[in-house]
Design a protein around this nucleic acid. Structure first.
Lengths: 101, 101
DNA sequence: ATCACTGTCATAGGGGCATAATACACATTG
DNA sequence: CAATGTGTATTATGCCCCTATGACAGTGAT
């Protein structure tokens, strides 16, 4: 969810992310869970921490995040989704407009 | 996985499914786990049990399964996948050929 | 210095799911 | 009848993730 927000520009490069407690409170989650998510993003270099201050979106994070998630999606997720679509006999035309629901 | 096998024709309508123990052994799973999966398919009417004999693919199961999973996919899965694709800036053309990996 | 804020760590508890090991009732076969 | 194979039920265990609660060190404002 946080990755999506960075990609969408909700949190731009250089912006400070909400504190783990604030973000947890806003989304009904546990601060520790948010902290783990932040830690994961930090490990991948998408955000950086200023000790005692907060987490900030790293410069170049959007582009790198898009590159990484594209590769992840195209190699991991999409092949299985494609198989599933084929198995159900769904035509590409049905996927273009959200009104098929 | 079992649903996919029924849709693919691995197990045709009227066919007997492998016993929970055999299927579990072949796939490195626990018989109870397979039994739960069979139970789920039974609840939805895709398979029927002959007491003391085994589980059999119900007549009309393929068509019903395709209808149900289509609805499930188009209303639940696809909208989120579509959002994800848009967020990553992936063009539909990149999704047609599996050689983008 | 004091306070409020930050990320981080430690401990404990709970829910979901798969596993593990039996046991039971039913059906077919020899 | 006895043996084998079927789905099903029971109980217990382990694993993983999230929650819950408290504490700590670093930073900035008052």
């Amino acid at each position: 969810m946080i990755s999506a927000m960075i990609l969408d520009g909700t949190y731009a490069e250089g912006d400070q992310l909400p504190s783990v407690r604030v973000f947890a409170s806003e989304h009904g989650a546990n601060p520790l869970t948010v902290a783990k998510a932040y830690q994961s993003l930090q490990d991948k270099g998408y955000v950086a921490v200023k000790r005692g201050i907060g987490m900030f979106v790293a410069s170049g994070a959007v582009e790198q995040l898009r590159i990484d998630e594209r590769a992840q999606f195209l190699t991991q997720s999409w092949p299985r989704i494609r198989e599933h679509i084929a198995r159900l006999g769904i035509e590409p035309a049905e996927l273009l407009d959200p009104i098929d629901a």
